[in-house]
Every structure is written in C-alpha cells, then in structure tokens.
Design a protein around this nucleic acid. Structure first.
Length: 556
RNA sequence: GCGGAUAUGGUGUAGUGGUAACAUAGGAGGUUUCCAACCUCUUGUCGCGGGUUCGACUCCCGCUAUCCGCACCA
C-alpha cells in the first residue's frame, strides 16, 4: 500500500468512527479483536444492504427466504465436513496441563491421523498412550474438538449436547431441504436465501472489516437438476466485458455469455449467478471497474466444490474476495443424507418410461422363511440373481460365504413387466455466498471522496440511494420566524413514511449542515426558507451535483 | 502464534517524573437570505492492571487493542 493510501484509509476509518458508521465493539472494556459495531448510521446502512440483497434474489421468482439458528448441533457440522475441515482435535496432558494436537501425537502410530474422526482418534490414543512432548507422561484427557468454530454446549449439565455457532448459513438450508422441496411443489430449480450472522474464531483477525470473528453473510442455495441443461438468458449483459482470472486462461476480458459458451465458466448457472452478482454489487454502489472474478485453482477449491469463482473487489486493502460462487455438486445433501439416513432427494420422471422385463426366481416366503430363518433374506437375494433356466434343488453360496441347499418348494417363478417412470436423485447446488461486511467496507471505500471543492478538503460519501442510511436531511435556513417549526413538522412527516429516514439539523451555518450531510452520504437535503413560509415550497438539494430546485411541501 | 511499531478529549495531534495543551468536532446563545464564515459561553482526554517513587500520563513489567511483515485462513 502506498503512503497516500494509508493516510486516506486512516482518515476514512476516523470518519466512520466519528460519524457512527463503524466502530470497534465493546471499546470501553478495551475492545475485542475481530468484532465491530455498526453505529447509528452504519446499522441502517447494513440493513439496507441486506434488504437490497434479499430483493435482488427474490426478484428471480423461485427463491424463498428462510432463517435458521446460529447455534448448531455438533452432528450437523460433523456431517457437513466442518468438524473435520475446520477442527484440530486437542487433548490435555493430565500431568502437566499442556495441550497437544491429538493427530500430531499419533503420527508415529498411524499413516494419516489427520483423516481420522474424533472417535477413531480417541480409541487410537487410548491404545497407544503416546508420551507428552513436554513431560513424557502418557496420561491424556478425552479429546475435544478445537477449531475455527466457536464451540458451545446446548443445554446444561449431563443433558448438554455439544454444538457450535455456525461458520456459514448454508447448512440450515440444506437440512431444511425437505420442507423447501415441498414448499416449491416438488419442482426444481428453486433457491433458498438467508442473511445472518456467521462465526469463525479466526487466529488473527486483521484489516478491520475484512476478517471478522462475527460477520454478516448472505447466501443463496440454488437447487438444480443435474440431468437438465440449464438455460439462462445472458442478453442483459451482452456487450459488457468483465475481467476474469481463469484457472487455465489467465486474465481475460469477455462477456459472461462468451465465457460460458467457451467453458471458461464451466457451468451456465454459475455464470448466470456471477452476472447477477455483478449487478448486485453495482446496485449497492461498488465501482464496476473495480470488480473482477477469479476462478479457484483445482487444489485451492474447497473439499466439496467442482467449480468456484470469487468476486473480488479492489479497495484500500488490494483485491479482496467478497463473494464466492461455488458449484457444490451434490456434496452437501449427500453428506446429510448419509449422516441421517433421511432422503434429501428430488424426483424426476423419465421422458420415456423404462420397461423392465423380469424373468427369474424369487423365494416362496412361507416355505423359505421357516427353512432358512435368519438367512432367509440372503437366500432371497441370491435366488433373485439366478437365471430363469436354473433347476432345483440347487446348492447356493450366500454373500457371507455360507452354503445352503435350495429346494423347489422354497422358490417360485417371477415373471412380470415393471415400468419405471422416473427416479429419485440428489439435487446439485450452486451457492453464491456473500460477505456482507466486506461488501459494505468496499461500498464505503468506493464512495468516500475527499477531493473537495476548490482545492479545499471536503468529504462526500457518494452512496447509492439504494443503501444511503439517511434519505433526507431537513434544515431550516434559520431557526426563527417559524422556519424551525415548519422544518420539524416536515421532518416528522417524512419519518412517518415507511422506509424513510430523515434527520433534522438546525445548528450551524447552512453550509456546515450540508457538509455534515454530505459526509455520511445523504442524497437529498431539504431546506425551509422564508419563501417556504409564504408559498409552502422548499428547496431540494442534490448531494452530488449541489443543484437545488424548489418543490411544494405537499409533493414530498 | 512469531517479529516490529503504536496507544493523550468524539476526531487529529503537542507535551512533561510535580494534576495536560492546540486544532477540529459537539452543546447553548448571538449574528447571518443556501454550501465547513464570525462572536460569546460551554462539555469532554493520558487503553487496562501491576511495580518503582513522596508523587507516574511520563520510567519498568504484564495484559488488551490497533497498524505493518510472517504464518494460518470458507
């Protein structure tokens, strides 16, 4: 970072703190790393970004909004792979209290202890009793998961279950797939969205809003049928080239459509969401010239993903990944299905039903059951593999190696025609995941303009009206002759309108008040002057142009 | 986690082993017919905890936080 950048960053951070946009949390107690407050102005900004995000996706028409708990049982995140991926398993020496990583202790007892589950590690630890690296004693406490997730206990005492604060919102959307599928009348594709808090106990939070321990995230899980060719309309982005850092191609400029057609972006739905993501970012005020997409290299890709692109935004900290758009395949639903035994599938009908001619043998339950007892199931399985020309009695070797003799009376011919009209499959998921805090940071970074007027230092936040925390400032030119009173009335009227925030300011010169409003990016300032008292009109001043025009109070 | 730097009103800075200053911002009033004007009054500061000392914002130690490298990192 160059010197002017650093000082600009310091002035920006100072302003954000002074004006109540972004502040270190719990500061009177000394603060806490990686935790920030959105202040009286920032809170509203965050809310408007979230709302804009929700509306952006809901407008697709097949998206529903849900909200899941942040407190998540251990089993959920074990199934998702987070316990394994995010965890170090710790154990404590009962003699010297030194904590060690269980997998490191067991390196000489197993070829790849990193891949073991918690219980496997525990039993291996119990068997091998490795010496403590600091005191050589081999007595260890039970293994606990120690990782980037904040762990907690759900419930008290003996009935308490281990759990975590979620590291992402996604898992709740996967675990509620059956309800989502039903709600969508069992038709794909559809999506679920959620905005909320996520938690990661980062080793070393840095760079202000860029790496937090508690952060705002917004995720879309879009469930698709992998057997269907996705069709997306890319015409809205025709002729618009975007910077892509592709795994194989390097840095290229091309349209989304072109990138999808030429397999630079490997899946059309991923490409479509990249385009929609681009639209969202510009909608909330990110400079379109400072957005690029970077494809994950194969070895960088998370354990589940088959193609993944980050939207990166350039700002005071360089290029920062702010959105991840991943094709996760069927990984997530499959994992939860395996862990729970519950079906997380969707039904598809074949275009042509498959006709299966079955001609073979099956068991006669009333005879084979009593004859083979516990083996009856295995016998049935074996008999159904036999060709129709088999003759009985017949000696059969079962799957478990046992030999049985099957008599004619144990079996019957099975001749029928079966029509299979479709199948149950695990949907694939394309997931755009947004780091809201990082996006808000870049909105502020891009909007912050201290170029000023006539060479003077003058700060303006060129925030998009979509996200500006305060919609209007109402000023009386002077607080006398009834101008203050009229301005107050207008202020209360404006505030009573839904989704409008107005601020009243009557102190200081009019220029100073415009400056205060510009600094936090208020798009429009309304001034009550002498003429207002006579004809019921006010002036509206535009933040970016400084131009004023006069309108009737009633038309506001 | 390792190494380096830093911590003084809301913000930005000065300064000292003997109770802290400047600018700016904020509040009240005055003045002013639209872009940080002016005048008067006023609010508010040495990150936290130990130690040394008659006395610590200042010196020492620890902690916390911030910034910069390194490591780690959906």
């Amino acid at each position: 970072m160059t010197e002017p950048d650093t000082s600009r960053l310091e002035r920006l951070s100072g302003m954000l703190k002074r004006r109540g946009i972004l502040l270190p949390a719990f500061e009177i107690h000394g603060g806490a790393k990686g935790l920030y407050d959105f202040g009286p102005v920032g809170g509203r900004l965050r809310n408007k970004v979230n709302q804009t995000w929700l509306n952006h996706w809901l407008s697709l028409g097949n998206i529903v909004e849900i909200s899941c708990p942040t407190v998540t049982p251990y089993a959920v995140l074990e199934a998702s792979g987070h316990v394994g991926e995010f965890s170090d398993f710790m154990t404590i020496c009962t003699t010297c209290d030194e904590a060690s990583r269980a997998d490191t202790l067991l390196e000489s007892h197993h070829s790849n202890p990193d891949a073991l589950t918690k219980s496997e590690l525990q039993s291996l630890l119990d068997q091998s009793n490795p010496p403590c690296p600091s005191c050589q004693e081999p007595e260890w406490s039970p293994i606990t998961a120690q990782n980037l997730m904040f762990n907690t206990t759900i419930g008290a005492g003996a009935s308490g279950r281990p759990g975590f604060l979620r590291p992402e919102t996604a898992q709740g959307m996967f675990t509620s797939f059956p309800a989502l599928y039903r709600h969508n009348r069992e038709r794909l594709p559809f999506g679920a969205i959620q905005v909320g808090k996520g938690y990661r106990n980062e080793i070393s939070p840095r760079q202000g809003m860029i790496r937090l321990r508690e952060f705002n995230m917004a995720e879309l899980e879009y469930f698709i049928n992998p057997h269907e060719e996705p069709s997306h309309d890319f015409t809205p982005w025709d002729g618009h080239n975007i910077t892509l850092l592709a795994d194989n191609e390097g840095e290229v400029e091309m349209s989304f459509k072109h990138a999808v057609e030429n397999n630079v972006i490997r899946h059309a739905t991923v490409g479509y969401f990249m385009a929609k993501t681009f639209d969202f970012l510009t909608k909330v005020g990110i400079d379109s010239q400072r957005i690029r997409f970077r494809q994950h290299e194969s070895d960088e890709m998370a354990h589940y993903a088959t193609d993944c692109w980050d939207a990166e935004i350039h700002g005071s900290y360089g290029w920062v990944e702010c959105v991840g758009i991943a094709h996760r395949g069927c990984y997530d639903l499959e994992s939860h299905e395996k862990a729970t035994g519950k079906s997380l599938r969707a039904r598809r009908e074949f275009s042509e039903p498959e006709i299966l001619e079955i001609d073979g043998w099956t068991t006669e339950g009333s005879k084979a059951g009593p004859a083979f007892r516990a083996l009856a199931g295995a016998v049935k399985e074996a008999v159904e593999q036999l060709s129709s020309s088999s003759t009985f009695p017949l000696e059969l070797t079962l799957a478990n190696g046992e030999k049985v003799t099957v008599e004619q009376e144990h079996v019957k011919r099975d001749q029928r025609t079966e029509t299979v009209t479709g199948e149950w499959y695990i949907p694939h998921v394309v997931e755009p995941a947004f780091g809201i805090d990082r996006i808000i940071w870049h909105i502020l970074d891009h909007a912050y303009d201290e170029s000023g007027k006539d060479g003077e230092t003058y700060t303006t936040m060129h925030l998009s009206a979509n996200v500006a925390p305060v919609d209007y400032c109402i000023f009386p030119l002077f607080e006398k002759d009834g101008m203050g009173k009229l301005a107050q009335t207008i202020h209360t009227t404006m505030c009573s309108k839904p989704n409008i925030v107005s601020m009243y300011d009557g102190s200081g010169s009019i220029g100073r008040r415009y400056a205060r409003a510009d600094e936090i990016g208020v798009p429009k300032c309304i001034t009550v002057d002498h003429q207002s008292l006579e004809d019921g009109t006010v002036t509206i001043r535009d933040r970016d142009s400084g131009e004023q025009h006069r309108v009737a109070i009633d038309s506001l």
